[in-house]
């Protein structure tokens, strides 16, 4: 990475921060939405839920909600990319003598920043709800690292899908699809409680791996499971995002370069 790439990426990040300053409501809504989900599932539905191996559902839910929020970040990234593509401003960037990677790097930095804030806020709300982490600070930081690692993989899927879709209207389809995919995991309920074949898919969902690994690191209930996938959640929480990145990072970069085809 050259000095020019760094400087230009910073300029692009500043652009995003300026958007935040101009549209604080959007930022707040983006941060509050996962909190609202957490509260809804904890207090509206949580009473009827049982945790595999026993324990308070709220303590099971907080790490799951963190993993889900990281995965749902995909649509925010995708929306931002399609909006840029359609405003024509991307043509200006591409005709400037700037590092062409800076547009995507700036997007990444900004989205990761937003997600880090979101993680902090959710942990804060979780603490207020009575959830605690029982491991050391090192384990907690590792858990946050795994969450952001998942978000980073989702970021590049979002960039790729945004470039592929090209239009903001198509983001709606993704916004609907992320729900079944998000729920087909152990975020809200144990895969063992689902029909067998659905449960095994849910157990292998990348979100399940991250959620289980994070539960384990935080010492929350549900940190272990019956399946192989649950037993090796830590490994999968590292490998799944890596595998997704291996596929989607080159696809996204290729697609961005391919804008000139």
């Amino acid at each position: 990475m050259t000095a020019m790439t760094l400087v230009d990426s910073w300029t692009m990040t500043r652009r995003g921060l300026a958007h935040w300053a101009r549209q604080p409501v959007q930022v707040v809504v983006g941060l509050v939405f996962p909190v609202m989900m957490l509260l809804m599932f904890a207090y509206f539905l949580g009473g009827g839920m049982t945790v595999p191996g026993g324990g308070d559902y709220k303590h099971y839910l907080v790490p799951g909600m963190l993993a889900l929020t990281m995965a749902f970040g995909l649509e925010a990234t995708m929306l931002a990319i399609t909006q840029d593509l359609n405003k024509g401003v991307i043509d200006r960037f591409r005709s400037l003598p700037m590092a062409s990677s800076a547009v995507l790097i700036g997007r990444s930095v900004l989205d990761m920043l937003q997600s880090a804030l979101s993680v902090l806020l959710l942990i804060g709300v979780g603490l207020a709800m009575g959830w605690r982490w029982h491991g050391g600070i090192g384990d907690a930081l590792f858990a946050v690292g795994l969450l952001l690692w998942l978000r980073f993989a989702m970021l590049w899927i979002g960039i790729y899908l945004g470039l592929l879709a090209g239009r903001p209207e198509l983001v709606q389809a993704v916004q609907i699809l992320v729900w079944p995919i998000g729920f087909l995991s152990n975020v809200f309920a144990a895969p063992e409680s689902m029909p067998a074949w659905i449960g095994s898919i849910a157990a292998w969902n990348p979100m399940s791996a991250t959620a289980t690994a994070v539960r384990d690191l935080f010492g929350s209930p549900g940190g272990h499971g019956a399946s192989w996938a649950a037993e090796h959640a830590g490994l999968l929480a590292v490998c799944w995002p890596l595998a997704l990145l291996v596929v989607f990072f080159p696809l996204a970069v290729g697609r961005y370069r391919g804008l000139s085809r």
Binding site: R15, A18, H19, Q23, K87, G88, V89, I90, D91, R92
Partner: peptide, 11 residues
């Protein structure tokens, strides 16, 4: 100067 304004409308 393209056909569509190539500026950031939010800024």
């Amino acid at each position: 100067l393209g056909q569509h304004a190539a500026v950031d409308e939010e800024l």
